[in-house]
Design a protein around this nucleic acid. Structure first.
Lengths: 191, 191
DNA sequence: CTCAATTTTCAGGAATTCCTGAAATATTGG
DNA sequence: CCAATATTTCAGGAATTCCTGAAAATTGAG
């Protein structure tokens, strides 16, 4: 591996973590290399840095592109393609979550709905459906929250996350205000 | 596979999804079987339902126990051990997130902090550290939010998630109240 | 303590996933 | 259209992960 020590440590860890999340180690390493790179890299840059075969890099990049995780850049007077990760790390996370949702959560919701439509043929199936219903509700709750929060600008999102569970206190505060005799008007009801 | 069709479909899907998340397919199936089961199951029940070897079940159960995902039940007058998933699906998700955080996120934070302490030996390393710093901040933001929200009772959590980004409106509302000339007192400032 | 029931361990074969080099395909400056 | 450069595909070997049966270890009733 032809990388400065700091980068190498990062890349190795990232590859390791990737493989625990169902991502091929090499693909994780390719992403890590691009993530810390100062400039867009071409495939051969990655070959050199990771010491893996050109074809492996090609497949890895294709995989990352299928996940929408790369920006493709052209360099004037150079035929090769250059790749970079988005500069905005929040955009990266949003993409990751969106893609994972699309590929894994949505099909799971579809499957659950389909199974919940069927009429159970036994007590065992009836109970299984109850459990599936709980799971379906929970996933809907979480994806609903996400699809809502996802629309916020990053600034707002950071504000919200920083607040953590303190929002609950704000909610209490709102309730308090709203239940005051002669409570507030439109602004309060909208909130 | 010796399962009613509804359960079989669920178990197969779950195993498939598990393997995309870095969980051995069989382990995912074992969990799924337990999740929809009407009563705690012993290892041989699982062997029968999934049609896999006894030793494979033993290893799978051990793995799930290491993840804190099982409840162990005794049946009077029976030496065998029986296993079940927690009844409360929210508890399941909390455990899952906690364990994943402990095993993957926390070590990543440690690694990032360690690399951020080192003094960079080149422009490349300096830039890499900038990127790592961004990543570190983002992960801290998210885990901070989680460790905060995690403390809420389930009721409260559901309330919060249901609200989605509408909380932002509540925050605006709060700001509005607070910036009114002669704004509210302690209650408002606390929120 | 003994013994039968139950669970765990683990070596090695099966299955799967990963990676490579060679060949095919695509692209573009001239 | 050619030739040089760049990228992709893919068969098959390498590496890894998974699973099994046999044997060892553990457990607890008698």
């Amino acid at each position: 591996m032809q990388l400065p020590p700091l980068c190498e440590a990062f890349v190795l860890h990232f590859g390791e973590m990737g493989s625990r999340w169902g991502i091929n180690r090499t693909v994780g390493q390719i992403y890590a290399v691009l993530f810390v790179a100062e400039r867009p890299l071409c495939a051969d840059d990655i070959v050199e840095r990771l010491g893996i075969s050109r074809s492996n890099v090609s497949m890895g990049l294709k995989e990352l592109q299928a996940w929408n995780l790369l920006r493709q850049r052209s360099v004037a007077g150079d035929r090769r393609e250059f790749f970079a990760t988005p500069d905005d790390i929040y955009a990266i996370v949003r993409t990751l979550v969106d893609e994972r949702k699309k590929r894994e959560i949505d099909p799971t919701l579809t499957m659950l709905r389909e199974l919940l439509m069927r009429s159970p043929d036994s007590e065992a199936e009836r109970h299984a459906q109850d459990r599936m219903r709980e799971m379906h509700e929970l996933i809907e709750l979480m994806t609903g929250w996400y699809s809502d929060v996802q629309k916020l600008e990053t600034e707002r999102l950071i504000q919200l996350l920083s607040l953590g569970s303190k929002v609950v206190k704000v909610l209490d505060f709102k309730d308090k205000i709203l239940t005051l005799p002669g409570g507030k008007g439109k602004a309060a009801r909208d909130a």
